[in-house]
Amino acid sequence: MKHHLIPRVIAKLTIPGILLFALYVQFHGDYGPGGGFQAGVIFGAGFILYGLVFGLENLRKVAPPQIVTAFIAVGVLLYGGVGVVSQILGANYLDYDVLSAVDHDGQHLGILLVELGVGITVAAVMMTIFMTFAGRLR
């Protein structure tokens, strides 16, 4: 892709937008359409686009596979961890009410963190799938 200037430029222009949009979908998820899963896919798509245009080698430098796989784990841990925290605070698993003094805030915080966990895992899984398949070809 080294000689295809136009895709490279456009990719460089759009990738920040894609990532930003992913974050919007992520954090706006509890008010409007969206959520961790969609956000994760979009976020991952940003990296995949980078990988498509600039090559797997470069993608591996930006997002080392070891770290990406670790992020799969981190997302799951975050998701599960929130549940465990609510248990530690004396409620049932994934009962967010106890996360803050006001029930409403607790729900908000809980969903935000859980969705973040989902987002991280999904994004990392998307990247891993891409890298695995792209890597197989060579």
Binding site: A73, G75, G80, G83, V84
Partner: peptide, 21 residues
């Protein structure tokens, strides 16, 4: 009282932990 959830959650969280460590 939390054991029913932990029964599943602890192995579930153990799996990613194995990947990190």
């Amino acid at each position: 009282a939390q054991f029913p959830a932990l029964q599943v959650v602890i192995p579930l969280l153990g799996a990613p932990l194995c990947i990190i460590l």
